[in-house]
């Protein structure tokens, strides 16, 4: 009985979290779009500052992660293709794998670790230091004031970082292909783009919009829920990153499934 009760309680808790995050998402979208009609337009200065913090300062880490992933994929695939005498196909495999899947997902995971954690830690510290309550007491909606700039900044910057991630992943493959597998640079580039269709690129680039919403909403939700001082902030940050990771992978699976089944 206890076992089933626990399952029931867990499902109920997860549904509650899901519904809370959904309402936070709708409130954020509402204030992003309709804030101007309440004479509370989006503060673009804050959005820009957040874009610099979330985007520009993440370039290096995204580059390294995706570049080396490109290198690794090329090295793993090379022996298989060498056996078939078609080593130059490494380039197309790397580009498709990176653009459709690994570029968007790895970039999102890196940003969930770097930015999602930072969002939760910042909002969580504000919560335990009464700053969120201060905003509410001043009649300032914390969702509009804190969540909207972070959400918009990530919605703009994550796709940009994904483009960078795609490019650096393919560059990683190129470095291995040209230097180690002795494919000529021209042939490598030609094979890369011969098999890479527009569909591969836009299905890949549609994902970061969903991932950006997941990272920012989970980050802010966990921050706003934080209780109990420094320990609470630490716990909320951990939960935020883990939840974002899981939701990114699930969302990726669902999106890929949709593209697969509707042959998009």
């Amino acid at each position: 009985m206890n076992f089933f009760e626990n399952i029931g309680i867990n499902i109920r808790n997860w549904l509650k979290v899901f519904s809370d995050i959904s309402s936070l998402f709708f409130a954020t979208v509402y204030w992003s779009v309709f804030g101007v009609f309440h004479r509370k337009p989006v503060n673009f200065k804050t959005v820009f500052e957040q874009m610099v913090y979330m985007g520009l300062q993440s370039i290096l880490i995204v580059f390294f992660v995706t570049f080396f992933t490109g290198v690794v994929i090329a090295m793993q695939l090379a022996p298989q293709f060498q056996k078939m005498g078609a080593v130059f196909y490494v380039s197309s495999m790397v580009s498709i794998a990176i653009c459709r899947e690994l570029g968007p997902v790895l970039t999102a995971l890196v940003i969930a670790g770097r930015i999602g954690a930072a969002i939760t830690a910042e909002v969580g510290s504000m919560k335990v230091n009464e700053q969120i309550e201060a905003l509410e007491t001043m009649g300032i909606n914390p969702v509009r004031y804190l969540a909207v700039p972070k959400f918009l900044a990530l919605l703009i910057m994550l796709p940009c970082l994904t483009v960078l991630g795609d490019a650096s992943g393919m560059f990683g493959g190129y470095v291995v292909g040209v230097n180690s597998l002795h494919i000529s640079p021209g042939l490598y580039a030609q094979t890369t783009f011969k098999f890479l269709s527009l569909k591969d690129i836009y299905t890949g680039l549609s994902k970061p919009f969903v991932f950006a919403a997941i990272i920012s909403m989970v980050g802010i939700y966990q921050g706003l829920k934080t209780k109990g001082g420094a320990v609470g902030v630490g716990q909320a940050t951990t939960i935020s990153v883990v939840t974002s990771f899981i939701l990114i992978i699930i969302a990726d699976c669902i999106l890929t499934g949709i593209y697969f089944f509707i042959n998009f």
Binding site: M126, N129, E130, Q131, A134, E136, T137, M138, G139, N141
Partner: peptide, 17 residues
């Protein structure tokens, strides 16, 4: 929220941003 503009609050930990 509109009503809250009529009062101010000073917090224990100051709660400055």
């Amino acid at each position: 929220d509109k009503f809250r503009k009529r009062f101010g609050m000073s917090f224990q930990n100051s709660a400055l941003l």
